[in-house]
Computed example of a mutant assay.
Amino acid sequence: MKFTLDVENNPTGWPDHTQLPESDGTFVKNFQEHPQSILLTDSITPVLQTIHADGNYCIGQDSGIYWRLTDPLERGAEAPDWFYVPNVPPTLDGQSRRSYVMWQEFVAPLILLEFVSGNGAEERNRTPLLRTDKQETKPGKFWVYENAIRPAFYGIYEVRKASVEVYSLIQNRYELVAANDRGHYPIPQLGVELGIWQGSYQNMELPWLRWWDSQGNLLLSGAQRAEEERQRADREQEIAQQQLQRADREQQRADRAEDELEQLRAQLRSAGIEPQL
């Protein structure tokens, strides 16, 4: 695809997110990927809303990140399965983002995640970008993330192995992060941990990639939060009903005691004694 510079509407001459392809035409690899992305986004949204009171953050799910201008344009992009960028608006000029363009905004994702469908070689490919007069090598995904896009954290999740590797960018190189005592990987900037949760989500029993808070409490999905709230409301209603029944029994006991007392007064009066009760 050839790109024609539109200097009048874009003085820099570099295309923006509306001018770049939003898909390379490939299929999502399996049925689990979209639910996995939704689960990650859904469960961390309350945390992000607390951190970003102004709403300035964006999440990409199988969305393109353009890091260089190439021909064809798609060669200059990677499409991580999930990523989060802090302190950028979720929309641009009133439009939803079609892609994330590094030369347009300069802010790197804080965390970027890949979901392995094959053997993981693509996600761990460190082949560097090399140019000659006639051609250039296609850089590996790991190399692009480490040297060009540069998220602070890069995670490689393998559902088949029920595992996740997390790398942290330290002095311009990715270093493998060690799991904590819970088997989770802390993301200090968010106050959360990343790890594997075995359970059922959207009718699939799998080892899902999930978030926990810094105390080790699982961050719930919207459906889980709603169910927890429903159970809490049911418990409160049950407690209120028990208290009402207890109060009713107390009233009945008080009424019986008053009846018995009145009978005793009547017996005393019939015997010519004025009760003092």
Rank of each mutant, 00 (worst) to 15 (best):
V166C: 02
V159T: 06
V159P: 04
E22S: 14
D255F: 00
T45C: 09
R173T: 15
A79K: 05
R225A: 07
R232D: 05
Q135T: 14
H34G: 09
L264D: 11
F142W: 10
D213H: 09
L20E: 02
E262Y: 08
E158H: 08
N217P: 11
E78P: 00
E146Y: 12
Y201N: 11
N203Q: 14
S214D: 09
E158L: 02
Q215W: 03
S117L: 04
E158P: 00
Y66Q: 08
T4K: 12
R235Q: 12
T127P: 02
A178P: 00
E274R: 13
A271L: 15
T26L: 12
L194M: 14
W14T: 04
V144C: 03
L113G: 00
V144L: 05
R160V: 00
N125Y: 04
G183F: 15
Y66I: 12
K138R: 15
P90F: 06
Q19P: 11
Q241A: 12
P46G: 09
T137W: 08
E158Q: 11
R235W: 04
D42I: 10
G140E: 02
F115W: 09
D181I: 11
T50M: 03
N119H: 13
P188V: 00
F31C: 11
G272W: 09
T91Y: 03
G94D: 09
L209A: 02
P21Y: 08
P86F: 02
R75C: 01
H17W: 14
T127E: 07
T137L: 13
Y174N: 07
E114P: 02
S163H: 14
V177Q: 10
G55M: 10
S99F: 04
N10M: 06
R182F: 15
Q252Y: 11
T26Q: 14
E175I: 13
F153E: 04
I65M: 03
P186D: 05
P35V: 02
I44S: 03
E123P: 10
P207G: 09
Y157M: 00
A233Y: 06
S214G: 01
Q243L: 12
L277Q: 08
Q245P: 05
S43H: 05
V88T: 10
F3Y: 15
I170K: 06
K141N: 10
Y201A: 06
T50G: 01
E205F: 03
A240Q: 14
P188C: 00
E22P: 04
G191K: 08
E238W: 07
A271T: 04
Q215T: 11
T45E: 11
P46E: 04
A271Y: 08
E193Y: 02
L169C: 07
A247Q: 15
Q171I: 06
L39W: 01
S43I: 03
E22T: 05
S200V: 15
K134S: 15
L92N: 01
D71G: 03
T137F: 06
F153C: 02
G140S: 10
G25L: 12
A247Y: 13
Y145H: 10
E105V: 09
G25I: 10
K29R: 06
L277M: 11
L130H: 13
T127I: 04
E22W: 07
S37F: 00
N30C: 14
W103S: 10
P109K: 01
Q231R: 14
D62M: 03
E74H: 10
A223M: 12
R68Q: 15
W67G: 11
